[in-house]
Every structure is written in structure tokens, then in C-alpha cells.
Design a binder for these strands. Structure first.
Length: 280
DNA sequence: CGAACGACCTGCAGGC
DNA sequence: TGCCTGCAGGTCGTTC
């Protein structure tokens, strides 16, 4: 579910409410997420102060300080995860698939992690950017370093489908299955085009399209297809802006041709055969 | 090294 | 109604 815009939407929602406050209680109902939640996590973060929040790719980082020691919670939402705020007067019991809660401040609110498939993770690291999960990540798509020249350099002599390249987190982070299809449609590039065959001009356009699509999605609060909810438990609105994702058989919004789908790397891909001709 | 693919886990839609 | 299959926003590890 969550790609970069959904993670950013989550960050934007919770940061103003929890920054500067202390984690007063940690409750873990299930530790067996994608990685086991470390057994010493509660000890490490209880009574820590939340210094700030940041994002690296699809990882949400909650920076903490406790007894002059610094570190960060590394949160990943996997395919089906969400973090939401439970207000003090939220007396409903936790729901199925709520796996942990962090009580913030004087019981005023709790952060609650919900994840049916348990592909997400919760870890703690003194230096999160050096953690093995983060250390080898590629550039941020919204940074200036992500540009046509970068894509040309990274795709040299590579024949993978450009959609696979775009979804390779060692190249560029945050672009998942939805936004990869959308960006390629925006850039008029067929998803199966061998990555090494694409010109600088086309890659410049693709980089601009990735940024544009991601920024639009963030502005709309992310995409809700099934169950993504933001920190307030509300849906995102970018789904209504999607041009091709999930729309096989429907009319292309640009040329009215029928949108097609195919499987690339075991992931559904959507494109307009007329707007995105395959040029090998 | 790059590339393809199975694995992890649950829920849901669709076919019979 | 129930059973079965396939599919879902991610990404790591194994294999060729």
C-alpha cells in the first residue's frame, strides 16, 4: 500500500502532534512483523523524547533522545500498514491487526500501528541512516540528484524494463507499483522499454514526471485503494487522479485508447499502448 | 555483477 | 453458503 506519498502523508499528520513530547508507554501486542520487534525496544524508547521525524524512502524515522543518547525508531508500513493517532477520548478497544501503540505525553494520545499482513517493521537504531536496511538506498526522487543524467548513468548497459529500474530502491527510493505506472504514462514511456535504451531527453522527462506525480499525491494525502488511512484515520484522495493504474480496459484519459496491463517482475503494470509505444 | 523469482502474511473478490 | 484460486500498495534472500 504505502509508497512515498503515503509515508509522507503519515509523517505530516503525526509530526505536529508528537514532536517534542515523550514516549510514556510502549505496548506491543505482536512482535512478529517482517522482522521481530527487538525484545529490548521498550526499554530503549520508553521515556525518550521525540526530537523530530523524517523520512528516507518509505522508511519513517522517529528521532529520539534519552539520557543524552540519540537514536531513532525505524518504521516501515510494508504493504498494508498504517499509523494513526488515537485521541485520549478514543475508548474503543484496539482492533484486530493493531500490533503496537506508543503512548505520547501524559496519556493525551497514542500512536497505533495497524498492519494485517505484517510486512512492516519497527526497529531502533542509534544511527538509522547507517542501518543495513537504509545504508544502500538510492537517491530521493524529490532531490535534485534525481534527474535524467542520473538515470542515464544508472541504466548504462542494463536491459531491465524501465519500470523495474524505477522501482529499484537501490536506484531511487519511494516509487512503488502505483506511481511507477503513473510516472511512465506521464512521460510517454512504455514500461517494458529496456532501461539502457532510453535517451537523456526521455529520462529528463521521466524524472520530472516522477517528481510531479509524487508531489501531487502528497498534496492529495496519498492514494487510498483499499484501506490506506492517514494519521487521522482518513482516506487519501489521489486515487481519483490516477490515469492508468488499475484501469485496464478503460479509456486512456489522453487519447481514449484502451489501457492495457501486463505483468512485469510479478507486478501488475498499466499503460496506454498508443501514448506509450514500445521503442526498442 | 545483473536479473528473475519465491518467500513472508492476511483479506478479499470472483468462479464454481 | 462454502471452497478454491488469484491478487493486493514491499522488499529481502536465493538462484541462475
Amino acid at each position: 500500500m504505502p509508497e512515498l506519498p503515503e509515508v509522507q502523508t503519515t509523517l505530516n499528520g503525526i509530526a505536529p502532534l508528537i514532536t517534542g513530547q515523550k514516549i510514556t508507554h510502549v505496548r506491543i501486542l505482536r512482535r512478529d512483523l517482517r522482522f521481530l520487534i527487538p525484545l529490548d525496544l521498550e526499554d530503549k524508547i520508553t521515556h525518550a523524547r521525540i526530537v523530530s521525524l523524517s523520512r528516507r524512502g518509505k522508511y519513517l524515522l522517529i528521532h529520539l533522545e534519552k539520557n543524552h543518547n540519540h537514536g531513532a525508531l525505524i518504521v516501515h508500513l510494508g504493504m498494508s500498514g498504517s499509523l494513526r493517532i488515537l485521541e485520549k477520548d478514543h475508548t474503543l478497544p484496539l482492533q484486530k491487526h493493531d500490533h503496537y501503540t506508543l503512548t505520547i505525553g501524559s496519556q493525551a494520545l497514542r500512536l497505533c500501528y495497524h498492519d494485517p499482513r505484517r510486512f512492516g517493521c519497527l526497529l531502533f537504531a542509534a544511527n538509522p541512516l547507517a542501518h543495513p536496511l537504509l545504508a544502500n538506498l538510492g537517491v530521493e526522487p524529490l532531490d535534485d540528484a534525481f534527474c535524467g543524467a542520473y538515470l542515464v548513468a544508472k541504466s548504462a548497459k542494463r536491459r531491465v524494463a524501465v519500470k523495474s529500474l524505477l522501482m529499484n530502491a537501490q536506484i531511487v527510493v519511494g516509487v512503488g507499483n502505483i506511481y511507477a505506472s503513473e510516472a511512465l504514462f506521464c512521460a510517454h514511456i512504455h514500461p517494458l522499454t529496456p532501461a539502457g535504451n532510453i535517451s537523456l531527453a526521455a529520462y529528463n522527462k521521466l524524472a520530472r514526471c516522477v517528481k510531479k506525480i509524487l508531489k501531487q499525491a502528497i498534496a492529495q494525502g496519498g492514494t487510498t485503494l483499499k484501506d490506506f488511512v492517514n494519521a487521522e484515520g482518513k482516506a487519501g484522495y489521489f486515487a481519483q487522479e490516477l490515469a492508468v493504474y488499475g484501469k485496464a480496459g478503460q479509456a486512456c484519459p489522453r487519447c481514449q485508447s484502451e489501457i492495457e496491463s501486463l505483468i512485469i517482475n510479478q507486478r501488475a503494470s498499466y499503460f496506454c499502448p498508443r501514448c506509450q509505444p514500445l521503442t526498442i
